[in-house]
Design a protein around this nucleic acid. Structure first.
Lengths: 114, 114
DNA sequence: TCCATGCATCGTCTTTTTACGATTGCCCTC
DNA sequence: GAGGGCAATCGTAAAAAGACGATGCATGGA
């Protein structure tokens, strides 16, 4: 992929995070973590119709993008969301929707006109 | 990419939209549209260090994902954001951030705990 | 200590994406 | 009707992503 000069740091980060989220298995993983707070790799292997190595690779992509993080819970390695990134993503996306409005919630914003 | 069964329609859509947004040039395009409301292909060709055919292809990816749409403005073909999709994306993303809270704005939500 | 278990990483193959030039198609204006 | 400008599409080459099995590496019982 060609590098785009003049891209803001925010936009670069956005592209990286969006790319990491741009796979059904990874969306599923993130969603699961959003609901269950923390899961081990084995949970995702059970959840997804993919080989263990593939799941592990997907987790790595999400981790490298800063979307999830590995933690130790009760002595076991498991994953959870990286709150800062998730929150940042939410704000960035909202910023596309409502570039001007500063005081509109997810339910009140009108979206971009055309 | 392998199909994941048991994926909700929402998650499939999310993966497709995220994937379409997962490229620096396309983030730049969407951002520009968010600020300028409507642009012709030539505007993007001027904006990005890419060949015309490549820019056109990027626009097609965004269009296929339902993120932008082609319109006629003053007799000229140009593009603008698809408000419904942008809004939906904002909500979906916010839903990852705050799966339970229904009444939190982008500035008030606390993000997922870990 | 030895084995099982759970994950990460490596090597490899296949598929998809990205980028470009060339071509085509469509209007506008002569 | 001829020529020019703009944008989509085609063909293709290079790069990246996705998937899997095999392998490596801790750790925690027997």
């Amino acid at each position: 992929m060609k590098e785009i000069e003049g891209l803001t740091r925010e936009e670069e980060r956005a592209a990286a995070v969006f790319r990491a989220m741009g796979n059904p298995a990874r969306v599923r993983i993130v969603r699961e973590l959003s609901l269950r707070r923390a899961c081990a790799t084995s949970d995702f292997v059970a959840l997804l119709p993919l080989a263990q190595s593939t799941v592990s690779q997907h987790l790595k992509v999400l981790k490298d993008a800063g979307i999830i993080q590995g933690i130790i819970e009760g002595g076991d390695q498991c994953y959870c969301l990286e709150p800062e990134t998730v929150r940042w993503l939410s704000l960035f996306t909202h910023g596309i929707c409502c570039p001007d409005e500063t005081d509109c919630g997810p339910d009140s914003c009108s979206g971009p006109e055309c």
